[in-house]
Simulated scan of single mutants.
Amino acid sequence: MKNVPLDTVDHVDRAVLPIGTDYPPGHVLDWHQHRRAQFLYGATGVMVVDTAQGTWTVPPERAVLIPAATQHRVRMVGVSTRSLYIEPDVVPWWPASCTVVDVPPLLRELLASAVEFEADYALSGRDGCIATLLLHEIAARTPLPFHVAIPSSGDLTELCRAYLAAPDVAVTNAQWADRSAMSERAFTRRFRSETGESPAVWRARARLLAAVPLLGTASVSAVAGRLGYASPAAFTAAFTRAFGLPPSRFAATHHGGERGPTRRLLHTA
């Protein structure tokens, strides 16, 4: 199914509903939730998925697993999606929070085939086998570290959301503490308790995540300069250390990308 609203087929008695959707550049799916779990794959472009708990950046040819009934927002940068909407009781191993994963060639081809199904596709034969194999392939994926946590407190949430929208290397802990009417020490302690990271470490990671959409339209050197890195080499080293691949792998001109061995972390029970 392509460009079919989920609510028109959600009632169909199929554990897995595949839907492909094309979005205009810069499109935002505002806050919403699904009754089913969602496997959201970006065949092209970059997606940024927000929940109350965090922000997940989904590079090209990656996907995000979204738990059922999770309130979320998706910002699209030149994205054509292939989604699977899955009955929660058939995937008890689904992660409890959003998770970004790699999408290797086999899974990619299965998704491309599945979005051609009718909503009431036959469970016996080829279509049903593809739907079953899709779940096995998803269960074998390894989570990727393309996310930052969002604090639960309103004032800290506001600081972090604003920084994600416009990362600024010049921002300091002292400035954030002052805006929160706290001492720097108290602010840092509170921030760490809500995110698991110091403010400085959090900001450094947020800047790297912000680089992923930018790399689709700008060179590594340009992105490094825009985000305040001393040199492209410094940016490349930090990006590679955080995500396991150099930023050149996420450029618009690069297709595929190197993938390391897959470890089974999501598993069927």
Rank of each mutant, 00 (worst) to 15 (best):
K2G: 15
D13A: 15
A15K: 09
A15I: 07
V16Q: 07
Y23S: 04
P25T: 14
F39D: 01
F39G: 01
L40A: 05
L40H: 13
L40P: 04
Q53M: 15
G54H: 06
T55L: 11
P60K: 01
L65C: 04
P67H: 11
V77I: 08
V77G: 07
V77E: 11
V79Y: 03
R82A: 07
R82L: 14
I86M: 14
W94M: 02
W94A: 01
A96H: 12
P104Y: 12
P104L: 12
L106W: 15
R108N: 11
R108T: 13
E118P: 02
A119F: 10
D120G: 05
Y121W: 12
R126N: 08
R126G: 08
G128Y: 13
A131P: 02
T132P: 07
H147K: 11
V148H: 00
V148C: 00
V148E: 01
P151I: 13
T157N: 10
L164A: 10
A166G: 09
P167L: 15
A170N: 06
V171L: 08
A181D: 15
E184T: 04
R185T: 11
R185E: 09
F187R: 10
T188M: 15
T195H: 06
P199Q: 02
R205D: 00
L208K: 00
L209A: 01
A211S: 02
T217G: 09
A218G: 06
A218Y: 13
S219K: 00
S221A: 15
R226F: 14
G228K: 06
A233I: 03
T236F: 03
F250L: 08
H254T: 04
H255M: 15
P261F: 07
T268S: 13
A269W: 12
